[in-house]
Design a protein around this nucleic acid. Structure first.
Lengths: 239, 239, 239, 239
DNA sequence: CATGAATGAGTCTTCATTCAT
DNA sequence: GATGAATGAAGACTCATTCAT
């Protein structure tokens, strides 16, 4: 009985995920108002009416899509950021992750800004964005605690530099149909470094941030540094 | 006769400006699809049909609104930037101007993305946007010519930092309902400084000694990486 | 004063004729509902509002166009039919005239059937058509009086054969983009002959109706017969 | 399952027929442009939007109505014509059938002219109309083959006499609110007879002796004409 | 539960008609 | 009288949502 119910539950959630995926795609490609419920249904391989068994109306579906996007993004970011790395490495990992996410799902991010309607829903959307942003905040705060980063820098300004630059860079890269990030993350990290690192520590960063050369295997100094920092953390943990 | 024709022309342009203003407001507050032509007409104090004497259809009106916004923005920017100031001061003036414009008309900027020729003309930007961005480019290029700024920095990345940061800051300031810019421009200028000022001129920053990644011993990154991965595995086994 | 008033009157009527001509063309080419008042105005070289100084509304204008067409057609028919010719020649003249009129203004005739709206207006239209048809009737009645035509044949049936055949032939000729009438009138006259001529007199007609050969000057036996009949009439009148 | 699908299909076709019937009525009574989609929907007992589930737009619906009319007419005509009768009897059967159809649905025929591809596909007739006319052609061609009818008579002219007369007669009968055909078909058959029956078979008609227009003396029509014109002038001077 | 046919409110757009200049 | 800008009623068409099967 429980198993059957679980199976049902699984089925339900699979359908739900299926609808969200379909809706994400259609919303992203045609825009909120350009997306017809029938298009979403077809994309999901369902009948129109079936959508309404899962979501009360189009706006609810949009909210779910946006909510799903941010929670997935948040989960992905947590995996992408090595908890043992030092704050700067983490920031770089986050930047890299965020940029790739934007490149892959740029249109979906835009939907967030367009979730009009009730104020309450808008606030709920913002809450989810805040959850995502908290990852950034946590990294920086940890950096400040450790003394690796300046505490006098206003956090939200660092945030806007970080996310604003990444979003605009993503747009530019998309327009250029560029495949690699073309040094965007490196550049950003240098900028963030100057913004966040206390003057006394700044020399340590420069080499890492500036070097972007790589050999044919695509392994950069950055990759090595990350690895080393990871090892360092583990050794610390051991002792 | 000429006077009468001029008066006519003036009337026409006044009405046109009136419509653009009304449409800007309605588009901004309700979004493109949320804005009804009759709402715009009422806002402009006109009958619905009258709009169509000035603009062929809704999309044309949107294009006009966005085009008008950017050309006004460009005109304002030219006034805001002192041609005799040095490039960095100019950049600061531009940043300040841009931020204020965003704070005042944040929603209109968002419309830009909808005004593009939907799929038809590929992703052709509005000419007016290019014109506006050219102001930033001109300042930086002049800085490079004068030797005040680095020529090796990629222009578009500087641009994305500049505009991305300002746009996200504007959003934040709007959410906080802040009245002043709370140091956003100052901070941005610091960041832009580090990004654009040649090492020789930076006094508060260590020279960015670039350590070349290739070494004479023929040891590649790949070799190092393999070694490190081996170490990592051993450590995992230990813990 | 009278002269000036006459001049005014002339001007007015000239404008009126101008509007009718313009409206005829636009109505004919685009259909009643497809014709926009502004198109008619432009075609007439006038402003939209000016049309309303001459005709209360679009329907009135249509009525005027149709009325004008039929009265012109009637007037033209009276000129085309030689009053001294014998009834059969007259019928042939009328057929030839009617066919050419149809070929030239086929679309306008169609407008007649479409003058919807008030019953009264419809009746008025029909009256004008009746005026035109009376020419046919008069010819046939005269033929009957003279004993050239049968009185037992129902007049309206002869009329429907006559006009129905000509209208359908006109349509066919138009579709074929034929320039000449391709024997339509000759054929029709033969048909009308068999329908209207008393058996006893039928031999007289056959040659005339059948011969359609002509030399390079385009003069047919028909032409000669007409001429001769005209002369015959005059001689009768003299004696 | 198959039954259910068949039922569905039946329902669909019933609805389709229902819509066509409703549209026919409204189009016929109010004209194409006078017919509002909502009127047709109401007449069919449906909501406005439902029409669009069956026909893409108003013009498609019109085309369907006209197409349906002609194909029904064609089917009816095939039933009305006895395949074993002789060509003349068949023609009479067709005439009688056509006239009655016109009396019943006169307005619908008029719609045909509007259903053509407006300017776009040049003047492409509806295939259904061609199919209908083919019935007439087949009868006449069979008559010619059998030797019952003349092969020298132009088919299209016979067609125009036939259909033109019937259409105009129908109009007349409708205006007179006549119930019977009042001899229209009989009369038409007489006319068609004279037009189509070979001279050898006509007993009530003198042989149509054709006098050739060219004579051996080399006197042309032009010569005669000039002579006659001279006589005419003299006569004018006399009177 | 799933379906998809039916619904009808909502919108853009057109164009006959008016009227201030 | 003439103009043509302004009007707003009207209508084709779309699409989110419902509900009988």
């Amino acid at each position: 009985m429980t198993t059957s119910r679980d199976t049902q539950r699984q089925k339900f959630e699979a359908r739900e995920a299926n609808i969200i995926a379909a809706a994400s795609e259609v919303f992203a490609s045609r825009g909120v108002d350009g997306a017809k419920m029938i298009d979403i249904a077809r994309q999901a391989g369902l009948a129109e009416g079936t959508l309404y068994l899962y979501y009360r109306n189009k706006h609810d579906l949009l909210t779910a899509v946006v909510g799903h996007f941010w929670s997935e993004l948040t989960a992905g970011a947590r995996l992408a950021v090595d908890p043992h790395a030092d704050p700067f490495q983490q920031l770089e990992q986050l930047a890299s992750y965020h940029l790739n996410a934007l490149l892959a799902q740029f249109q979906v991010v835009q939907l967030t800004y367009r979730a009009r309607g009730t104020e309450s829903a808008h606030v709920r959307d913002l809450d989810q964005v805040r959850g995502y942003v908290r990852i950034f905040d946590a990294i920086v705060e940890r950096g400040i605690d450790r003394g690796n980063m300046r505490g006098d820098a206003t956090l939200w300004q660092a945030r806007d530099i970080f996310y604003g630059t990444l979003e605009f860079s993503a747009r530019t890269l998309t327009l250029r149909e560029a495949s690699s990030d073309e040094g965007v993350v490196d550049n950003l990290m240098q900028v963030m470094g100057h913004h966040l690192i206390p003057a006394a520590k700044r020399t340590d960063l420069a080499p890492s941030a500036v070097t972007s050369s790589s050999d044919a295997q695509g392994i950069t100094h950055k990759d090595l540094m990350e690895k080393l920092n990871g090892l360092e953390e583990r050794l610390k943990a051991l002792s």
